[in-house]
Amino acid sequence: MSNITELKQIASQVRRDIVRMVHSAQSGHPGGSLGCTDFMVALYFEVMNHNAANFNMDGQNEDLFFLSNGHISPVFYSVLSRSGYFNIDEMSTFRQLNSRLQGHPTTHEGLPGVRVASGSLGQGMSVAAGAALTKKLNGDSSLVFSLHGDGELQEGQIWEAAMFAPNHQVDNLICTIDANGQQIDGSTEEVMSLGDIGGKFEAFGWDVMHIENGNDMSQVLAGLNQAKTRTGQGKPVLIVMKTDMGSGVDFMEGTHEWHGIAPNDDQLASALNQLEETLGDY
């Protein structure tokens, strides 16, 4: 239980980082970042075996993570810096000129922890599957994780990758779908219904799991740990994880309105009042 308490404390600080970064830049994507905070904290502070202090691109013999829905860069940057990839002070440069913390994540500026650029949606599952193949070729038994938005599943390339991975028994791959039911123009139901996400992937040959509440740290951790036990059995693993967009900040919760806009000064103050400063702000 103690690690759950600790992870929740980290998540609170990461949420503060997210709203502060987006407020400071007066641009960015807070909603999806807040919704995926618990997942990202569980992954980087508990589930993955990774080497933050000595980042190298090849990442042999460590678990890898690919963020396919690159617009939720604030949560990615916060978790990377809080886990030791770079100094937390650098978060103040988010979306500024000459920053390594670009609007969408990139390898181009040399930010430790990022292994591919993302932002143009639908590409990360292919990249993650490729990295997983290389691990197999290298006899490296560690795992590859990725995260995708549910709206992102409307991109055709996702389904090319979804077909490839089971066909080639890429069973060292755990892809998670952030099923928050929202996208820029409205709910996924209104914009382009995704139907039964789990059923679709199952039909493609994936081992499908569900995390019913992706903002409950215990459930997230249990789900990820279970996913690890289901690797190595011939199928890639897919987790459909329900989250609340904007989770943790009451006026941002459950709406697509906060997909890509920044809080003003009053809204920032209100948000920070709801989020305990546990590790010290950057």
């Binding site: 890898l64 591919v116 993650a128 599957a129 490729g130 193949l133 290389t134 390339q157």
Partner: peptide, 10 residues
């Protein structure tokens, strides 16, 4: 995308 990922690890 697969090709990009395959480079990671040499």
């Amino acid at each position: 995308g697969l090709a990009a990922g395959l480079t990671i690890g040499g």
